[in-house]
Design a protein around this nucleic acid. Structure first.
Lengths: 337, 337
DNA sequence: CTGTTAGCGCCTTCAG
DNA sequence: CTGAAGGCGCTAACAG
């Protein structure tokens, strides 16, 4: 491996001079600077970030940990975070926890050991509390995205999940639906909880009955096994006339399961969900959704993170951004009666 | 920051003993091991990966650089790579080049400086040659995914793009289409070239006319601006009866543009493409595609990479895996005549 | 079983 | 404008 000493020897200067050329610090004569640069190129020198971070005590690395890399909500969010990081002069790396607390834990360990300068996280759930406390204890700045974690105070970007659920239920109610079921992610995820709350409130508000039988708590992540959903559908009697899905992944899984049972959306049963279904949905705008500004989640979150990193002493109060969501009516709801 | 010296002092041992406990090397009495471990927990010690990597000359970090994080082909590939890495005991981080050579370059710089142990890359295009040569020069093992780069010899996982294109054209031909257009990614990307070659060969084989006017070379990445596609559609006279899209992103963009012009698929014009359209396509299986085993690209690529890293001395010949692709007939092709 | 010494590649500090 | 010394946190190699 080529080091500054190799450069120094070849250029007849000290290692210190080479270091100064690399970092553009101190005053160097144009002549030596040019010579050093030439030698660096000749030798294909690449600075050793490890060594540098070790002495500087910072890595200039930011990290985004998302919960599901195959979910377009998160990949769009990732684009936003990346764009903001670039614009502000930082490099960003990604990780994928797969909605899995253990994998998240592994990433946290890695990041802590790597001494990343800051972290953007969509936490896997409430069980992320200890991981986040560890980050805090080690003074790693972080911003939560999309999900809060009880017991954790931090900067955060959220969607208005409760209001979104209310809008979905109201829309169904306005279309004459009275038996409205909900399939949801795990209630250990704050967004799932909020959506569930909003669902129940809206039922009450619209004088609609609530029944436990009509609610299935499962997981936001993609699963190969759809039998749980199928059993739920089999259990409900009578079938609901509409289903609210807690996110886009669940919506797709429900539709597939319904189709397998010979039921069609919206002819036999209506369906709405949270989060848009990627640009691919634009081919055939079909599912009525609560659309969230995924890109903004990432962009604004990254801005907050970098702000904290750049001005650690200011230490203002935690900021909370709640992004509004929008009901987009398409064709997955049939008016009944 | 807590260091092994802090631990050592508190536990009345030397730093070396602490190091041995951390790494489970050498022989340590159960008593001291227990004591050291207790002190580490008390002090919330986290090993400094920088320092460790510096002396060990390896980071245990693997990296996957994909070309478009919003494309389900690549996110599925990412899942495959991640699963393989976990199974083999490695950690994986991600980056997204956005089909952009400059961003790719930035990532390469970062990775080189970070001294990652190995890299999985879906290169942005032929212009990646110098980046890859740099990796090679610095002896960073890498495996190419999905795209080859002329001038670069390496392990690689490819799809059979040429054959895929032939199948698509044959399918259209069998359905009576004679005016078949193609929209493609940049020809500086090997998969786009292969698909173009396959398209031309298949036209000849099926006695169909080839016309430059019917071919648009653009980019595989997502663009906000669809006017280029719109102008192309306006230029073709007469309109083709079918279009082959070089990938899923382009297919969606073409459909959107056609719809904006009041043209419907497949009633007014048929369309086929490469790569599946995410699980969301399962809602309404619509576009006839050449489906590739995205997950396997990542999984097999990662296996090859780790194999190289673990057995650097063996240095067998470069391996090339060509994954077969499969024509999935859906509803986006209308039989004509 | 445990400690000492030296050095990984770089930068800060202090002298010239 | 340039250089020498020391240390960031850790581990390999050698002593004991």
């Amino acid at each position: 491996m080529v080091t500054i000493y190799d450069i120094a020897a070849r250029a007849n200067v000290s290692a210190m001079t080479v270091s100064r050329v690399i970092n553009n610090t101190g005053r160097i004569s144009e002549k030596t600077r040019a010579k050093v640069k030439r030698v660096m190129e000749e030798l294909n020198y690449v600075p050793n970030q490890m060594a540098r971070s070790l002495v500087l005590q910072q890595t200039h690395l930011l990290f985004l940990l998302i919960a599901d890399i195959t979910n377009p909500f998160y990949t769009t969010l990732a684009r936003g975070a990346e764009d903001a990081a670039r614009k502000l002069g930082f490099r960003l790396l990604f990780g994928n926890s797969d909605e899995n607390g253990d994998k998240e834990q592994e990433y946290m360990d890695t990041l802590l050991k790597m001494r990343v300068d800051g972290l953007l996280v969509a936490p896997a759930g409430d069980a992320s509390l200890p991981h986040l406390e560890t980050l805090r204890r080690h003074q790693v700045p972080f911003v939560l995205l999309d999900r809060e974690v009880p017991g954790v105070e931090s900067d955060i970007v959220l969607g208005d999940s409760k209001e979104g659920a209310r809008q979905l239920v109201r829309h169904l109610s306005e279309n004459g639906h009275r038996r409205i079921a909900m399939i949801n992610g795990a209630l250990t995820v704050s967004s799932a909880r909020q959506r569930f709350e909003g669902y129940k409130e809206a039922l009450k508000l619209n004088d609609l009955p609530y029944s436990e039988e009509y609610v299935l708590e499962t997981s936001f992540g993609p699963r190969a096994d759809l039998s749980e959903i199928d059993r739920w559908l089999g259990r409900m009697d009578p079938l609901p006339t509409a289903i609210v899905a807690g996110n886009n992944v669940l919506a797709v899984e429900v539709i597939r399961t319904l189709n397998a049972r010979g039921l069609r959306v919206p002819e036999d049963i209506s369906l709405v969900c949270f989060d848009d279904l990627a640009s691919y949905a634009e081919i055939d705008p079909f599912v009525t959704v609560i659309s969230q500004q995924a890109y903004q989640f990432g962009y604004l979150g990254m801005q907050m993170l970098i702000d904290r990193i750049r001005n650690p002493e200011e230490a203002g109060p935690w900021k909370k951004i709640v992004l509004p969501s929008e009901l987009i009516v398409r064709r997955s709801v049939k008016a009944v009666r």
